[in-house]
Design a protein around this nucleic acid. Structure first.
Length: 397
DNA sequence: GTCAATTCACATGAAAGAGACCACGGTCTAGTG
DNA sequence: CTAGACCGTGGTCTCTTTCATGTGAATTGACGA
């Protein structure tokens, strides 16, 4: 039976030893090539162990440069040594939708971490503030608050939250609060209130991208744990590293590549990962990402994407906002759904730009106005699949 | 030919509404002694 | 008499609409050589 064969081969993988090592939630024991950064941060945080207030810290670097990993590592090390001192280190990822993407919810989440409950909604925000202060003031303690992806907070709300957070220290009598902000976006600090900026970035640390050699190093150590012996073919690691290095030195990307290449090899029933599977893996990752974005997007967004796809199918590769809106209206009519205003469509288009589904840039056509010039960034092989997904979701025949 | 004013087709911002969710406090109802 | 059901009020959150203002260069038209 085929099924049995599939299960059998799954049970006794001849490729993987421990696939988890290549997954993004895995925490390795050592973090190569980040010694300098970790030491710097450690020396900044060390005063906390002697019950002194630590400086606020701002960490930035591209995705997959080991920021979060390093901070987690330091968090654990700190906590290991702090059984006597009343030190608390709390980590919060501000990007998680529905968990921590508004002022209210972040506070609610923090209060929860300190062992109290607060309703998910319905309370005035300043009351939640007071509750938070009350909770952390219950006993004398040192708190280090790690805010991952702080730039998201500012993007979604204003910098008011950060300002309040910085100011909170002055309202606390017993407790001391320090903040570690982590951000992918280097320019993020430029657009916030100078007062917040100066207090948030009392110390700054930059995580530079990994270069190809460092990536190879990381991959090698992980591959040894993840794969069985003699599975990884000649040059495979070098190639993964090279591809990822091209993409801003993103280690996560490199690990994904290696894992997916392994999965593809396994599915083929082969015992050795060869170079060609890496190219395939690269394509597959890209494809899966795009399709899953399209699939999970709300209907209105799908309609806009469909409009853009149809336009770029039809003729040119340069599309303007107005054209998209017309095509979108057409799609709406066909699908019998309500139409949104052009204002909204403009925003949706720029969201697609951020997601990487399209490339859009604002240009001026002089006398003939100012628009976005839009180009579809989905490769041809996926377009058909994408269309199918959208058509199904919009209820077309 | 040169220069500033004009003009288009949107971008970009701000404010505010709609509808969903929820807490809180007061009132009503039904079950209990 | 009291616990629970049921409202109304007031708050947040997301997605939108409405109204307002901004904008960059092709075009236009006046001007001078």
């Amino acid at each position: 039976m085929k099924v049995q064969k599939i299960f059998d081969s799954f049970m006794s993988s001849n490729i993987f030893n421990n696939k988890g090592v290549l997954q993004s939630n895995y925490t390795p024991e050592t973090i190569p090539h980040r010694d300098k950064e970790i030491e710097q941060i450690a020396s900044i945080l060390a005063p906390a162990l002697r019950q002194e207030r630590t400086s606020n810290l701002f960490v930035y670097g591209n995705t997959g440069t080991g920021k979060t990993l390093s901070i987690h590592y330091l968090k654990n090390e700190l906590l290991k040594r702090s059984d006597k001192s009343p030190l608390r280190v709390e980590y919060l990822n501000c990007k998680l939708r529905k968990v921590a993407d508004t002022e209210y919810r972040i506070l609610a989440e923090l209060i929860k971490k300190f062992g109290h409950e607060v309703p998910a909604t319905g309370l005035p925000t300043d009351q939640v503030y007071n509750k938070f202060i009350e909770v952390i003031e219950q006993e004398k303690q040192f708190i280090i608050l790690i805010l991952d992806e702080v730039d998201q907070i500012v993007k979604k709300m204003s910098d008011g939250f950060l300002y309040n957070l910085m100011r909170i220290n002055t309202e606390l009598s017993k407790t001391q609060l320090s903040v570690i902000g982590i951000s992918n976006d280097v320019t993020f600090l430029d657009n916030i209130d100078p007062r917040v900026r100066s207090s948030l970035s009392e110390e700054e640390i930059i995580f530079p991208p990994y270069n190809a050699l460092q990536l190879q190093d990381i991959l090698k150590t992980r591959a040894e744990l993840a794969f069985k012996k003699n599975v990884v073919g000649e040059g495979v690691i070098a190639k993964c590293a090279a591809i990822a290095a091209r993409e801003h030195g993103d280690a996560r990307r490199a690990l994904d590549l290696l894992r997916v290449a392994g999965e593809l090899t396994e599915r083929e029933g082969l015992a050795k990962i060869s170079l060609k599977y890496i190219d395939q893996a690269n394509a597959k990752i890209e494809k899966d990402k795009i399709l899953s974005i399209i699939e999970t997007e709300p209907k209105q967004f799908q309609a806009v994407i469909l409009a853009i796809i149809e336009l770029s199918d039809k003729n040119k590769d340069k599309i303007f906002t107005g054209e998209v809106y017309q095509a979108y209206q057409d799609v709406c009519k066909r699908a019998r759904m309500e139409m949104l205003t052009q204002r909204r469509i403009g925003d949706i288009i720029s969201e697609f730009d951020m997601l990487g589904l399209i490339n859009a840039s604002v240009i001026s056509k002089g006398r003939y106005g100012k628009t976005r010039e839009i180009k579809l960034a989905i490769s041809k092989q996926i377009i058909e699949r994408a269309k199918k997904i959208i058509n199904e979701s919009l209820g077309f025949a």
